[in-house]
Each structure stands twice: as structure tokens, then as C-alpha cells.
Design a binder for these strands. Structure first.
Length: 638
RNA sequence: GGUCAUGUAGCUCAGCCUGGUUAGAGCGAAGGUUUUGUAAACCUUAGGUCGUGGGUCCAAAUCCCACCAUGACCUCCA
């Protein structure tokens, strides 16, 4: 038997229709509304009996005593278990629980068994407001313990997130907003040929339908190019990065961090784990309890791994002495990692992970006006960053803006201005009322060839956490006020950026273009091939010269034919391949093979340097993190 | 989380349906020959708990069950 107990402000449910033949009879279809009550969601499993019903009643009594309340709603809820008992015995056990609970003198309500019900519930925010138990008959316990890897039967793994179901049931409408300010319902919008990706994106977001397709193409590339791979010894969604992938990841991270520093972000570092009972943490923790990695430390202290940098930065900002003169205050951290225990079926390659690196930049603003002004700056920042990385806002990405009706009514011009900056029609999700801590958020979404959308850059306007975390600044008139907080990631998760770049490459491939990654992210920018061993000294000399100019090059010194070495260079998607033999050494002019042009050009080394420096201008450089000689390099991927 | 599919050498895969000698190939690796001119030189050798654990059977990579991992889809309902 599985019990999920929720201490709620209110619960509402309404039987809609019978789900199974054995459903209870004579059920009123009236909506039921109960306030200040413990909702006990219960799933009866195979082997559960009246004895266990008694145990459950004891469990409920203990919980109610802790909460100092005596009102309870017993609510049959199948999703808690994958080993459900047959309906007849389940209903008998549930009725027994009800009987025992009444006998304890509680005010007991029970929702009907076997019915489809709509329901709404508002869980109180306190740490004890959610409680999960997996109850077993004593004879079964040892067997179950033995078959459970950790020997632990309950814990956050089993929790059902009420916030998530709220998210799913959120009432919203979908629109297309054009840069000229024209807003039309999605159904009325006339998609032009240039809006193909937008239409795919809209389909994905509004229909929530996922077309049947094969495995995402970036997975093959991430392995084949030696970028990243699964690590079976870890939890799903925790990846390993090989040297080439690590270099690429570090370069992107450095670039994003540098641009945020230029914008004015103060880089900080905050802990990866937090006390789930800390008063400031409740609101966040309880929002997605089912998606946390939990762990226990000394003294049975319950900790959870952060899923964003918000906590650390908010707790830090709370301790700052802030005046309106300091605002907007910009804090930045690149989390390695943020953790989200996404449902296992939602993980996919580098697209969605459980541990990911997230640039997270918060701006604490005086008021909504300053926040709007700041949001525009950050839009420019995000736009510059994502375009420079190689994901184009004019071709590759689609924008979504989501806001409340109230915000739109008061800030219509501002919203249109934002869309104008993007320059193409965007998808709008209009919320009737605010259900989250933010009143507006926008994202750039990458739509892959299979029509799936993933958010990259994003910013949000948060009007709730300033007060929730007790962050205060002294206003011009001397009053203490809470700031409006913006949550921005200019690039989105770094792993997801790599996902998008790789998916982009495979799209190039289907269009007949040789796929290639941006030159500044290539592990090897120039591959130098020695025709014979006697040319190796010259190769080494060229390699040093390029390294001095901050160009990554390596030398294929293997005992292989020139053709074979050329092929190897192509397989590794290396942009420039230089063959060094007698002719070149004599003339001082080299024939370079350019991958993206598929042809050979005669160049001097200094011309080659100039070209590469031009193509990588303004982007960070890191030295090659592999041996320069291919003969001493391990084979990471075939 | 559920359903389905997949898991065989470092990599990519064949064999499984219809159980039966020492489980195959290509790439890669090692040793040797070759000193190479723009997408794969030649020869030889090594390399496998057939995802893990149970079961059926005289016999299991092959059939059955459970678990693990990956992928796709679904996540309605007690």
C-alpha cells in the first residue's frame, strides 16, 4: 500500500464518470469542496489486507497528531503504484481504512472508488505538509528490502508533485504576435513558408503531441565525434564528457561567462545542496518535490541538490546591504551542476539531463519599470550570446513569450517592443491568471528536425521571491522594499547548446552540406599531415607557430598512407588539413584542404593564420587538451 | 512512472524467429612489411562473463521471468 498525505488549505474534487465496471454505485456528481484538511492519496497493492489497513490508519493517526488536525479525506489514487490490487479487494481495504479512521474519532471523508474525477488541491507550504509512506505486511518486508538496492522504501523518489499537475492543468491561450504588434489566435494565423519552424514549434507547444520518430541524431554524433557519452555507473542523465567535448563545453562556458561579466554580472559560487527544511527553501522545494535529488547528511538532515542557482543567489542577496543606488544588482553563477530528477522517460541524449551546467544570472531591480528596462538589455545579451555561439535567432531559433493577461493589459507596448527586437513572429502563451512566481518569461527555442522544441536562452520577471527570501533594499524615500528579480540564462544549459549545435549539423547533412561545428569550438582547427617521417620536423615547427597564434593544431604522425590520414581528418570534421611534404618545404607554400569548401587552396602559413583568426575573432581560445601527435592519442571513438 | 523496442569483441553490426560442433564480419588495436601526395596499403595475431540474475531443457546468444541500461511513444485512469 502506498500513502501520500498532503496537508492542504483546500481540496476540491468532482466525480466525472465511472472508470471501471466495479466502480462504486450511488455516487453524487456534485463538486465537493473541503477546507483545511489532510488529503490521503492511497493506492492498494497486491497482498494488502485488513491488517495493513489498520497499519495505515495508525500511520494516518500519527501524521494527524503531528499536524494537530483531525480532518481527513481518503482519496483512491492509482498512480502511486504499478502493482495494483484487483478492484474488489482494493475497495474493501479502503473501506477498512475509513472504518478504522472513524473509530479513532476523526472527521473522515472519502472520495469514490473507480471514478474519473477532476480535482484541485492546494498544499500548505510547511515542511511537514507532504508525507509519503510505502506500507507492507510484515511478512513481505524482508523480501522487499532485499530487492530494493538501497534498502530504503520511502523517500522523495515516490513523491507526487502537486505543482507539476498544476502546471499541466494551467489555463492558457495561444497566440502569434508579429513584430508590427498584430496578435492573432494561433488557429487564425496564416503561416508563411518562412514560418515553417515556427509552425513546428507551435504544434509542439500547443498540441503537446510528439510525432513518431527515430532516435535523435545528435546522440550518434556526440558519441561518434568523441564529445560525450552515457555513464552507466551513474544515474541516468549524468553524462561523461571526453576531451573533445570537454574542450567544447569549456569554451562555450568561458564565452557565456565573459559576456555576462561584460554586461555587469558579478560571478559568484554557491553550494549545490540545501536543507529542505530551511524556511526560505520551502516554496521552491515544494514546487517540484518529485523532481529533486534528495540526500541525507549528519543528524538525519534532509538535503536536496539545487535545480538552479536561484537559492544560493537569493540567500546571498538577502545578506547584502542594498540601496536603490546599487540596483539593478546582477549576480551570476554557472552551475556545475544543476540537478533535476526528470522522469526517466523524458531523458534523451544531451537534450534533457538530470545534471547540467546552467549559466544563471539574476538581476535585482527596484521596480517593474527598472525590470523592464533591464529585461531589454538582457534580451540583447542573450541574443548576442546565442548567435555568436552559432545558433541563429533569424534562422535556427523560435521565440516564445508567456505572460499573464494582467501584465499584457498594462505593458502591451513593451511586449511588442520585445518581439520587435526578435524581428519575426513569436508564439505567445497568455495566462488568465498568475500560477507561477513570474509574470512574464520569454525563451528562444530550438526546434529539431523531428519537430521537438527545447528552450535555450530565457529570462523571467519574478515578483514573488524578493519578499519570500526577505531580500530588501532601501528606497529613495528611506522605505525598505523588495526587489523585482529577473532570472536569465543567456545561452541555456551548455549541454543543450551542444545538443542544438549537433542537431544543426545533422540537418546540414540531410541538406547535402558537409556538417561542421563552429571553428572556435573545433578541438583541432588545423590537422598537419606529414607525407613521410622526414617531414615531421617541419610539421612540428608549423604546429608551434600555430599554437603561438592561439590556433589549435595537431600532427598526424602515424605510419599510414596520406589518403588514410586525410580520411581521418575528414572523419573528425577538421576544417583545415595541411599536407607537408618535400614540395611544400621547398616552396614555403602549402596546399590546404578546406572542409567546408571541399577544395584545395594554396596558402602560406601566415595567410592561414590570418584566415583562422578572422573566423574565430572575438571568441575564447583554449589550448588543445590532447597530445599533439596522433600516434600517442588514445582511440576514444572509432 | 507506464508500454513497446534494443542490448553479441574497444566501435558498427550479423547470428536469435526455427535451441545443437571451437559465436562471425568490417573498422579499430598489437606485431611485421611498406615511406606513402588529398576520404581507407598489405600480411599476421590477439581480442567475447552474448547487459545482469534466475528458470525451462540432455543442451540456451537463441525460449520464459525479473532486474539494469539506452531509445521511442505515452503519462488517461484508483
Amino acid at each position: 500500500m502506498r500513502l501520500l498525505q498532503l496537508h492542504t488549505d483546500f481540496v476540491e474534487y468532482c466525480p466525472v464518470s465511472k472508470e471501471i465496471a466495479q466502480a462504486e454505485q450511488d455516487v453524487s456528481k456534485e463538486k465537493v469542496h473541503l477546507e483545511d484538511i489532510v488529503v490521503t492519496l492511497v493506492a492498494i497493492e497486491n497482498g494488502d489486507d485488513e491488517r495493513l489497513a489498520k497499519t495505515a490508519a495508525d500511520e494516518i493517526r500519527t501524521y494527524l497528531a503531528k499536524l494537530k488536525t483531525n480532518r481527513i479525506l481518503i482519496y483512491p489514487y492509482a498512480h502511486l503504484s504499478s502493482d495494483l490490487a484487483p478492484a474488489e479487494s482494493a475497495i474493501a481495504v479502503i473501506k477498512s481504512i475509513e472504518k478504522f479512521a472513524r473509530a479513532s474519532g476523526f472527521d473522515v471523508y472519502r472520495a469514490p472508488f473507480g471514478w474519473t474525477k477532476s480535482f484541485a488541491v492546494q498544499v500548505k507550504g510547511h515542511p511537514l505538509s507532504e508525507n509519503f509512506k510505502h506500507l507492507l505486511n510484515s511478512s513481505d518486508i524482508s523480501a522487499t528490502l532485499a530487492s530494493t538496492p538501497t534498502g530504503v522504501l520511502d523517500g522523495p523518489r515516490e513523491k507526487v508533485s502537486v505543482a507539476l499537475s498544476e502546471e499541466e492543468k494551467l489555463e492558457s491561450t495561444w497566440w502569434i504576435l508579429e513584430p508590427n504588434g498584430k496578435m492573432s489566435p494561433v488557429a487564425d494565423y496564416d503561416f508563411k513558408p518562412s514560418d515553417m519552424k515556427l509552425r513546428n514549434f507551435v504544434n509542439y507547444e500547443t498540441a503537446k503531441r510528439r510525432a513518431a520518430d527515430e532516435q535523435p541524431s545528435h546522440i550518434k554524433l556526440m558519441k561518434g565525434l568523441g564529445i560525450a557519452d552515457y555513464e552507466p555507473a551513474s544515474d541516468p542523465g549524468n553524462m561523461r564528457f571526453y576531451p573533445k567535448g570537454k574542450l567544447m563545453k569549456s569554451l562555450i562556458e568561458q564565452y557565456v561567462s565573459r559576456e555576462i561579466a561584460r554586461y555587469g554580472g558579478m560571478e559568484v559560487e554557491t553550494p549545490v545542496m540545501y536543507d529542505s527544511k530551511h524556511p526560505s527553501m520551502e516554496s521552491y522545494f515544494n514546487r517540484f518535490p518529485a523532481r529533486q535529488y534528495g540526500l541525507t547528511s549528519d543528524n538525519h538532515r534532509q538535503l536536496f541538490l539545487r535545480f538552479a542557482a536561484c537559492f544560493g543567489q537569493f540567500l546571498m542577496a538577502k545578506d547584502f546591504m542594498l540601496s536603490y543606488k546599487h540596483l539593478p544588482l546582477r549576480l551570476y553563477e554557472l552551475t556545475r551542476y544543476s540537478f533535476r530528477r526528470e522522469k526517466s522517460g523524458e531523458l534523451s541524449g544531451l537534450r534533457r539531463l538530470r545534471a547540467f551546467s546552467m549559466p544563471d544570472c539574476h538581476a535585482f531591480c527596484m521596480d517593474i519599470n527598472q525590470a523592464k528596462e533591464e529585461l531589454l538589455k538582457r534580451f540583447n545579451l542573450s541574443s548576442t550570446v546565442i548567435n555568436s555561439i552559432g545558433l541563429s535567432t533569424s534562422e535556427t531559433l523560435e521565440m516564445a513569450i508567456r505572460f499573464t493577461q494582467e501584465f499584457y493589459n498594462e505593458n502591451r507596448d513593451f511586449v511588442i517592443k520585445l518581439v520587435g527586437k526578435f524581428g519575426r513572429p513569436v508564439l505567445v502563451e497568455l495566462w488568465k491568471k498568475r500560477s507561477f512566481y513570474f509574470i512574464l518569461k520569454w525563451e528562444f527555442n530550438f526546434v529539431d528536425s523531428t519537430g521537438k522544441a527545447s528552450a535555450l536562452s530565457t529570462d523571467q520577471v519574478d515578483i514573488e521571491n524578493g519578499s519570500r527570501y526577505g531580500i530588501e533594499f532601501v528606497a529613495e524615500n528611506g522605505d525598505k522594499k523588495n526587489p523585482v528579480i529577473l532570472h536569465n540564462s543567456p545561452s541555456g544549459a551548455i549541454e543543450r547548446v551542444i545538443f542544438a549545435l549537433l542537431e544543426n549539423c545533422s540537418e546540414m547533412g540531410t541538406k547535402g552540406v558537409k556538417p561542421s561545428l563552429p571553428l572556435w569550438l573545433a578541438h583541432t582547427q588545423v590537422r598537419i599531415i606529414a607525407v613521410g617521417t622526414r617531414h615531421l620536423d617541419k610539421c612540428k615547427q608549423i604546429c608551434s607557430e600555430l599554437t603561438e597564434q592561439k590556433i589549435r593544431s595537431d600532427i598526424d604522425d602515424r605510419d599510414e598512407s596520406v589518403s588514410n590520414k586525410i580520411r581521418q581528418s575528414e572523419v573528425e570534421w577538421i576544417d583545415y588539413t595541411l599536407v607537408v611534404g618535400d614540395k611544400e618545404i621547398e616552396a614555403g607554400v602549402f596546399v590546404v584542404r578546406k572542409r567546408n569548401q571541399g577544395q584545395h587552396t594554396k596558402v602560406t602559413i601566415s595567410q592561414l593564420i590570418d584566415e583562422i583568426r578572422l573566423r574565430t575573432k572575438g571568441m575564447p581560445y583554449l589550448p588543445l587538451n590532447l597530445p599533439a601527435y596522433l600516434s600517442s592519442r588514445p582511440i576514444i571513438m572509432a
